[in-house]
Amino acid sequence: MNDVNGSRTALTGVPVGGDHGSGSQGDGSAAGYLARRTLPLAVEFARQFRRRRTLVMFGLLLALPWILVIAFKVGSNSGQPGATLRISDLATEGGLNFAAFALSVSASFLLVVAVALFCGDTVASEASWSSLRYLLAAPIPRDRLLRQKLIVAMAYSAAAVVCLPLMALLAGTLAFGWHDVRVPGTGETIAALEVLPRFGVVIGYALVSQFVVAALAFLLSVGTDSPLGAVGGAVGLVIVSNILQAVEALGSLREFLPTFWNTAWLDALAPQPEYSGMVKGVAVSVAYSAILVALAFRRFRRKDVVS
């Protein structure tokens, strides 16, 4: 061992703490430092909020219902409805019908992309900006950093999933009025006030069914420096799962595909709501996402941050 303390310079004469800006605490940390106070949620929200992709995504989600309204107004002379009433045939029946339609057309892809973006980008973009290492050296304990980022990403995802149907409800109500809901298929009507709480369930389910996408995007985000890779990987999972879903030879195995139950929320808008499909969907979603999130934490703990 070859120490550098062989000679004393002028500086070594300065007493410890003499001109110190900070004292130290029992665990060796600087005064005022507490691990559990690091990266408050408000700070992480602020860090993410002013990003262009956040604003663009929310702008898109909030504008989509109005675009749909315009599309329905422009193309109002649609042909004869088919033998069975589809959800799109009923979109102009009223605000609630319109919101259900908007959710049905966006849940399969647009919301997937939004959720994958918020969850897949969160750690990977820090890595790509190199800011991750300064946060970790601040130090923010790794589990805590991941936890706070997951909470914020999920909150943004939830906001995305919630804001679209709510804006659709607003746009639809302004454009087509506040009417009772007409059910696809049979064309029965259900009182609007009766449907409203169920609509809350629907939005909640739409969120839960995106958990797998969120968790996978998050896991990929932890593993890569490329935000696009994490987002694309999660979206790719949805695509592959949708393709497998079309393979009928898989039989009941398909029930365990993460996207299989994604449209089960339609059952809640039937005259007699049926929740078994949604319960299964929640079970599958929670099962996958718990493991994926656990893997993300495990991976991040052990990871050498070299970005």
């Binding site: 665990d27 940390s29 691990a35 290492r133 130090p139 589990d143």
Partner: peptide, 15 residues
């Protein structure tokens, strides 16, 4: 990783 003593370390590494 995340040791509290790192709060007494200021760093600028690799950009």
């Amino acid at each position: 990783p995340g040791a509290p003593v790192l709060s007494r370390l200021g760093s600028f590494v690799e950009g």
